[in-house]
Simulated scan of single mutants.
Amino acid sequence: MSNKTILITGATSGIGYSLFEQYSEQGEQVIVCGRNQQQLSSMGNVAFKTCCFDITDQQAIEEASRTIESLDVLILNAGNCRYIDDAKHFDGELFADVIQTNLISLGWLLQYLLPKVKKGGQVVFVSSSATLLPFQRSEAYGASKAGVDYLAKSLKLDLIKEEIDVTLIHPGFIKTPLTDKNDFSMPFLLSSDEAASRIIIAIEKRKSYAHFPKRLTLLLKAISLLPDFVWQKIIVKD
């Protein structure tokens, strides 16, 4: 059986890097994408191909896409997390930046990379369990990831005729350079290697949806079913 060609955005750190390592160990042809040229260069001896671009740069994405022939799996993993610290004095610039990075960039990535995905291939969206329940300070991040969820679910319907599967991933708290900046408790924290392993299993099983760790995600789903005044008392911190 021939090796799969798998493209990963945000592959130079966190979950993306762990996905790169595990897929490479399996002998797959991994195309790693990111902004950090130095890190990409260090991965070049193992990676099938490296592409250096910012996911918000349409022209750079278009140029990189010209060097890619075909894909079996497209993993849209790159993103950012920033918080609204003062809701009354809302930071519109921060909001726009997060929406641009986490959601609008997916439009450009899909425009140039989805045509490369073979019949019978897969598109994977790494979203967040933050969409299961509203959280304080998460207006920008949560809104962007809620958009990712809808995009993935809608795209899945339109790609049925193309015989391309779509997988939506809801990770919980994962130890990455992004979450290292968090100043709050992160229950049931998983390593990026654990997260990557679970994502790979979901892809191999061609699941339409995967969430983990379930002790967190199922708890959030259960809380979301409670009356608003109840779950808000649980979530809101003074």
Rank of each mutant, 00 (worst) to 15 (best):
C81F: 12
Q122H: 06
F95S: 07
T5F: 03
L159Q: 07
W231G: 02
D149A: 05
Q58C: 02
Y83H: 09
Q39D: 06
I8V: 10
D85Q: 07
V166N: 01
L159V: 09
F173R: 00
S42W: 12
F48D: 00
K156D: 13
F212V: 02
A202W: 15
P134N: 04
E63L: 03
V32F: 13
H170V: 07
D228R: 13
R66N: 04
F48M: 00
D158W: 15
K221A: 13
K181Q: 14
K207Y: 15
V230Q: 05
G142N: 09
T179E: 03
D193Y: 14
G10Y: 09
L218T: 01
C51K: 07
D193V: 15
K205Y: 05
Q39W: 13
R198A: 06
T101H: 06
G172Y: 10
T67G: 01
S197L: 14
E162Q: 14
L19S: 01
I235A: 02
L218F: 11
Q111E: 11
T12K: 04
Y83Q: 10
N102E: 09
S185A: 11
T12H: 13
Q39T: 13
R82I: 03
L189P: 01
K181V: 03
L94E: 06
L218Y: 12
I8T: 10
E162W: 06
R35F: 09
A146V: 08
C52K: 15
Q100T: 04
Q111W: 00
A130C: 10
L220M: 13
R137I: 08
G44Q: 15
A202L: 12
M1N: 05
V148W: 12
D57F: 00
N36R: 12
R215Y: 04
Q136K: 14
I223F: 10
A140N: 06
S2H: 05
E63I: 04
D183V: 07
I104M: 13
T131A: 05
N80A: 10
V124H: 11
L178T: 06
W231R: 03
S208H: 12
G142C: 04
S65A: 13
L225Y: 14
I55Q: 02
Q26P: 01
L40D: 07
A195E: 05
G27I: 08
K153L: 14
L7C: 03
P171T: 04
P187H: 01
K237Y: 08
L71M: 02
I160V: 15
V73K: 00
T12P: 09
I235F: 08
Q22E: 07
I55A: 00
W108Q: 01
S224F: 04
A210Q: 12
S41Y: 14
A96S: 15
K207T: 15
I104R: 07
F188N: 09
S197T: 11
E194T: 09
S18W: 11
